[in-house]
């Protein structure tokens, strides 16, 4: 009879694993995209639970803050903003594509499983440091991973400015020759034929 802690751990792992896989299947298969978005939040939370089981409490908190708090909310806002009921017309060869892609994904899954189970992993490795992980993370960020850390901040700044520039409607520039505005707002108003569907 194994001790109670191990049984609890197994049960928690089973519940989290089921939630991750079933939730992910729901995200890609449910017809209503709002349900998909909320299920995606559930998948993110379950993955955070798996991180807790892997001795990574800081990453679990970061996962909840960033994924559930920011990315998922952003996706929900995008769904609200592009909320247009449109019938996706039938596309030629969609059945064949679906069968082929399912085959490719199952093959990829089998390949990954074969690699995971045939490689002689060097377990058990050194014992995990547990709650000292946050201290070790900080040491890494300010010593040997300092350059990627600073580059990540530059990347976030670029993404912020890029998202604002891409999503704003106002006119940012005017044509030098004609003096007319040459930006998003004008393109929307003019509905230039280039951007429209060919009949």
């Amino acid at each position: 009879m194994p001790p109670l802690a191990e049984i609890t751990q197994l049960i928690v792992f089973g519940v989290l694993a089921t939630a991750v896989v079933v939730g992910a299947l729901g995200v890609v298969m449910l017809p209503n995209i709002v349900y998909s978005a909320f299920l995606l939040g559930g998948v993110f939370l379950s993955v955070a639970g798996l991180y807790l089981m892997l001795n990574a409490s800081f990453i679990a908190a970061a996962q909840i803050l960033i994924y559930v708090g920011a990315v998922n909310v952003l996706i929900l806002f995008a769904i609200m903003l592009v909320n247009k009921k449109e019938a996706m017309g039938a596309s030629p060869g969609i059945g064949l594509r679906r069968v082929l892609s399912t085959g490719v994904c199952l093959g990829l899954f089998a390949l990954l499983l074969r690699v995971a189970f045939s490689t002689p992993w060097a377990t058990p490795g050194p014992a995990a440091i547990g709650e000292d992980a946050v201290i070790r993370l900080g040491e890494h960020f300010f010593s040997d991973y300092l350059l990627p850390f600073e580059l990540a901040s530059v990347l976030l700044l670029m993404a912020m400015i890029g998202a604002i520039v891409l999503a704003r409607r106002d006119v940012l520039a005017t044509d030098i020759g004609t003096g007319e505005s040459v930006d998003q707002g004008l393109i929307e108003k003019a509905r230039t034929p280039l951007l429209m569907e060919k009949p």
């Binding site: 001795n55 990574a56 800081f58 990453i59 970061a62 996962q63 960033i66 994924y67 920011a70 990315v71 952003l74 996706i75 806002f77 995008a78 992993w121 060097a122 377990t123 490795g125 050194p126 014992a127 995990a128 440091i129 992980a133 070790r136 993370l137 890494h140 960020f141 991973y145 990627p148 990540a152 990347l155 976030l156 670029m158 993404a159 912020m160 890029g162 998202a163 604002i164 891409l166 999503a167």
Partner: peptide, 28 residues
């Protein structure tokens, strides 16, 4: 496999950062 030098967690932080940036730009 790397319980003392948790380099995997460092990489995971970078992946989360890039994912957040990608989501913002992608939705824009």
């Amino acid at each position: 496999l790397d319980g003392t030098e948790i380099r995997g967690q460092v990489y995971a932080i970078f992946v989360i950062t890039v994912a957040a940036a990608e989501a913002a730009v992608g939705l824009a």
